Computed example of a mutant assay.
Amino acid sequence: MHWAAAAALTAIFLPVSAQAHGLFDAHLLGRAPLLLTAVLVAAAWLLYVLGARKVPPRRSEALCFHSAMLLAVFSVFGPIDDWAESSTSWHMTQHMLFIIVIAPLWALARPLPQWRGVTGRFAQPLWTGILRAGRYPTLLALLHGAIIWIWHTPKLYVLALDNLWWHAFEHACFLFTGWLFWWSVLRANPKQVPQALMAVLLTLMHTGLLGALLTFGTVSFYGEGRSVDDQQLAGLIMWVPGGLIYLIGGGWIAWRWLTRMWRRQQTGAAREELG
């Protein structure tokens, strides 16, 4: 997968013409937020590749990480970002890629050992803070939920479209809080499973509510230039595929928990027989 990472890192910085959000064009200074985003994505990816040499990850974890990074590059620098400028449904597709695809893939990838293997003590407070935050699934679900609702209010939604700095910050909010949320629920220990399931259920409910509001809305919430039909499609994208992913996530958490309990019971039964 390292060759794919190298190719994607190179592609991030290739000149992109005829795109509203291209990295290199006549308005280079105006593209500073995208350039900064590209540098951060490239740095995170490069640190992982270097860290993997010191702390080899499992193949499944490496696949999850590289897949997530490829999707992140496509979502931020690909054509979908331009389509989102004028289409609410494409904008929602981009957001859902961040929230229910890229973020959980990062959580499953468990990249902290690789990053820590390179940064050492320099970034230890950051990694420690992330690990400690993972102990509170419900709190992180509330934080992530607040971010989702705040950025889908009409004023901030339009602000992110009109200003690249706010646009980049919006993406960072979705990705970081989404990663923390999925990290906390997918990596929950047996004692945290009830909280994790409650966090997933809460997220399923409030995102479904937001999706329903957009689906059944009869006026455009985000400006007269955006059609109601497109907005309703955006609501369905959040409501149906999003709800399905949260159900799958909750099912996986419950299955993992039940499997651990079954193994413990089997181990206990075997010990009793030997005893």
Rank of each mutant, 00 (worst) to 15 (best):
S89V: 04
T267H: 12
Q124N: 11
T259I: 08
I237H: 00
E61I: 07
H167W: 08
I130N: 00
T215M: 09
P137Q: 02
R53N: 10
R256Q: 15
W183N: 08
G117L: 05
W83D: 02
T203M: 08
V240S: 04
L34D: 01
A43Y: 04
M1T: 13
A8I: 13
H206R: 02
A133Y: 01
L180F: 10
A32D: 00
V193F: 10
A84H: 01
G22A: 14
A234I: 10
V240F: 13
R260Q: 15
V49T: 06
S67Q: 06
L29C: 03
Q124A: 11
P125G: 12
F65Y: 15
I99E: 01
F216N: 07
W182E: 02
W262G: 09
W115L: 14
Y136R: 07
V118N: 02
D82G: 09
L247N: 00
V16M: 11
R260K: 15
V200M: 07
F216G: 05
C64K: 07
T10L: 15
L209N: 08
D230A: 09
S89D: 03
A103G: 05
R264L: 12
A107K: 03
P57R: 05
A68Q: 01
L258Q: 15
M261D: 14
R116G: 12
C173E: 05
Y222H: 04
P125I: 10
L108S: 07
W106N: 02
A172D: 00
A103L: 05
A133H: 01
L139W: 11
P194S: 09
G251N: 03
W151P: 03
Q192N: 12
A52H: 06
W166E: 03
F13S: 00
R116E: 15
H2V: 15
Q195D: 13
L186M: 13
G275T: 09
L108I: 03
A7N: 12
T128N: 14
P79C: 06
W239K: 13
D25R: 04
S67K: 05
H206G: 03
E170V: 04
G249E: 00
P33Q: 07
P79A: 07
G223S: 04
G242A: 08
P57W: 08
R110M: 08
A133C: 11
Y157D: 05
P125L: 08
Q124H: 09
G249R: 01
A254F: 15
L197I: 11
A212K: 03
H144P: 02
A38T: 04
F24N: 00
R260P: 02
L71R: 11
L50C: 12
T207L: 13
A5D: 13
A123R: 04
L186W: 03
G235R: 04
S184M: 07
V41K: 02
A84F: 03
L23Q: 00
G22Q: 04
Y136H: 12
A109I: 05
V101Q: 02
R31P: 00
V193L: 14
A84W: 01
R263E: 14
L159R: 06
V185T: 14
A6F: 12
L274F: 12
R135Y: 09
A38L: 05
P56I: 09
G235L: 12
T88V: 14
E272T: 14
I237D: 00
V158E: 01
V73M: 06
S89Q: 06
L105Q: 04
R264C: 09
L34W: 08
